[in-house]
Design a protein around this nucleic acid. Structure first.
Ligand SMILES: [Zn+2]
Ligand SMILES: [Zn+2]
Ligand SMILES: [Zn+2]
Ligand SMILES: [Zn+2]
Lengths: 156, 156
DNA sequence: TCTAAATTGAGAATCTGTCTCAACTGGAGA
DNA sequence: TCTCCAGTTGAGACAGATTCTCAATTTAGA
């Protein structure tokens, strides 16, 4: 068992959350998915491996993991929500390519600071925020400059 | 007919978009809703007034108005979109109170500039962005400092 | 081991929003 | 003003993501 997985299971135990086979599988699956993933991708992952974890349990467990701070949920307006492990990673926001679906992360502390400042000015107590920039990534830009072929990829 | 409404209908005409009774009603309804609204609120508005505009037409028309730049669509994570008239208003972002549902607008040009800079650094061509801050508004903060009563209001 | 309470799974339900297609209509031209 | 047809509409089917229901199962502590 990897050290991160051990840490995660420890956190669950501390919170009095039972360590079921399904939750173990999900914790393991989260890391093998790498980066950003959605509930359905995780479900497919289990189906392919023969593990059986129901859709309901996946959604429930992902929700729980977000609640206790092990996962971050990124709500994409249209399509389904994405999740990503928090686990020591730096807080960041996302650029999403409308052409190929690529997700690019960026860190910009000054933006975070300005948000806090805006909140302070309004007497608003921030708990969470989402910042997503939609557009065309570098690779897709280059493609388009070259051969203007038909559209493909993740629309929005 | 208000001057804004006249301007809007003019824009539709210029684009060759037919001025049907339903579209007129929607244009009028948009202004009477004031501020931010969602498709269902608009639908209820019509139902109450006895006007009959189908759900399909409301969604189609809101989409059209976004396309031609008369409305802005704000995709809330929870998957229900809000709309707001653009109409000369300054570009802004939103703080949303998790307790009472209040939506507070803010303008922060420096955040916009930093976003552009981040994109430039990555060779990413931005087309659109969403920035929402979720938390507790000033009024709800004060309430809580006083009597600690049970929870109520718009959750998330 | 026993037991209460937490958890699961199958499928129904919900919630937003889109699509289909026959019926209808705005408005340009006669 | 009348005609005509492409653009529009409405009812309801459809779709995708997520949540809910509740009986059956399982965990973890005594
Ligand atoms: Zn791309
Ligand atoms: Zn990320
Ligand atoms: Zn509030
Ligand atoms: Zn606004």
């Amino acid at each position: 068992m990897s050290p991160q997985l051990a840490a995660m299971t420890g956190i669950l135990k501390d919170r009095g959350i039972r360590l079921t086979a399904e939750r173990r599988a999900i914790l393991k699956g989260i890391h093998s998915c790498g980066g950003h993933f959605d509930a359905d991708t995780l479900l497919d992952h289990f189906r392919r491996r023969g593990d059986r974890v129901s859709r309901a349990t996946i959604y429930r467990t992902l929700g729980t993991l977000v609640e206790i701070g092990l996962l971050r949920k990124i709500e994409m307006g249209d399509r389904q929500s994405l999740y990503e492990p928090v686990e020591g990673r730096e807080h960041h926001e996302h650029m999403i390519c409308l052409h190929c679906g690529e997700i690019i992360e960026f860190v910009e502390p000054e933006i975070e600071r300005l948000q806090d400042e805006v909140c302070r000015r309004s007497g608003f107590t921030p708990q969470d925020h989402t910042l997503q920039i939609y557009g065309i990534c570098y690779a897709c830009n280059c493609e388009n400059v070259a051969g203007e072929s038909g559209t493909a990829g993740a629309g929005r």
